[in-house]
């Protein structure tokens, strides 16, 4: 999209990582990194963050506000939801599913998009034309409609959801990668590899892929936020992740029904989504700024 001019050479790439380390000292970036680390920890070791069972219901103590202490003396820091489940515990355990779904979907779309983007950009000709048509088709097909339609067929399994969400957004990757490859294809180091008789697959894997990796990272961070939101919207439309598995998006869409009674039920998962996306986007922005050689020049 906007990164069409970004062609870091191998030496620039090393500079990127060094630059990244330097950026961490800035408070905004440091917070973003801390948030991401915490999220990852949450999804791997949820037990460290809460001692509550996220699916334990108590209908009698439903829709309670923050700092609610139930009869057995358990403190619900963020209160309870419409089934009396602990909201904080559901946020903690929801991190795993939310991240699995969104990262999974990004991986699917990245794999598909990178593959087709590389082929289209490198091979060109009819292959490229076909891939471009495929991109047009996919972009013209609204994601939400595609997923609702397909979920009726496949059932609402986690795997199907991940695959469909991924399927719906591969064109972003494909477009960016394709245009990157188009500019890389004729650069000296690729020419050199070709002249010494390297095979096509070797050229693509050894010389092209490493150079588009950072662009992929940037696109991936943005797609990640989109996926979190898509998952929420699908829950709202009744085709999200199966209950009782908690996801942040599912929590918002269930909680919005109680906005007039207990607005905290949907607010907290909403805040967590916002913080997460803010953190991911901050890192994505930093990455992009660092990757742009001209920007790097003006800063130093």
């Amino acid at each position: 999209m906007t990164q069409t001019n970004t062609v870091p050479s191998p030496s620039q790439r090393r500079g990127v990582w060094r630059g990244m380390l330097k950026q961490i000292r800035r408070p905004g970036v440091a917070i973003a990194v801390a948030v991401v680390i915490m999220l990852v920890a949450m999804s791997i070791f949820p037990g460290l963050f809460t001692s509550q069972d996220p699916n334990l219901q108590s209908i009698l103590s439903r829709l309670k506000g923050p700092m609610f202490e139930d009869r057995s003396g358990v403190l619900h820091v963020l209160g309870t939801d419409q089934l009396g489940r602990d909201i904080w515990a559901r946020i903690v355990y929801g991190a795993r599913t939310t991240l699995i779904v969104s990262i999974g979907a990004v991986l699917v779309s990245a794999a598909l998009g990178i593959f087709l983007g590389l082929i289209g950009g490198y091979v060109g000709g009819v292959t490229d034309a076909v891939i471009l048509r495929l991109i047009d088709m996919q972009l013209a097909f609204p994601v939400i409609l595609l997923v609702i339609g397909a979920v009726a067929v496949t059932g609402q399994s986690l795997a199907a959801l991940i695959f469909l969400m991924g399927l719906a957004s591969w064109p972003t990757f494909a477009r960016v990668i394709r245009s990157e490859v188009l500019t890389l294809r004729d650069r000296e180091f690729v020419e050199a590899a070709r002249s010494i008789g390297a095979t096509q697959s070797r050229i693509i894997l050894r010389h092209i892929v490493p150079n588009v990796l950072s662009v992929i990272m940037v696109v991936a961070t943005f797609e990640l936020s989109t996926m979190i939101l898509i998952e929420a919207t699908l829950s709202f439309l009744g085709v999200g992740v199966q209950p009782p598995t908690p996801t942040w998006g599912g929590m918002i869409s269930e909680g919005q029904r109680y906005l007039s009674q207990a607005w905290t039920v949907s607010l907290f998962p909403g805040l967590v989504i916002s913080i997460t996306i803010l953190a991911i986007n901050t890192l994505g922005d930093e990455l992009r700024d660092l990757l742009d050689p001209r920007l790097a020049r003006t800063e130093n």
Partner: peptide, 25 residues
């Protein structure tokens, strides 16, 4: 969805482990 989830929790409590399958209307 709420009632179904509540019922699933009650069944689970006596040992009937429901595999919840949510269906669009």
């Amino acid at each position: 969805q709420e009632v179904a989830t509540a019922i699933a929790g009650m069944l689970e409590a006596v040992g009937i482990r429901p595999n919840m399958i949510q269906l669009e209307a």
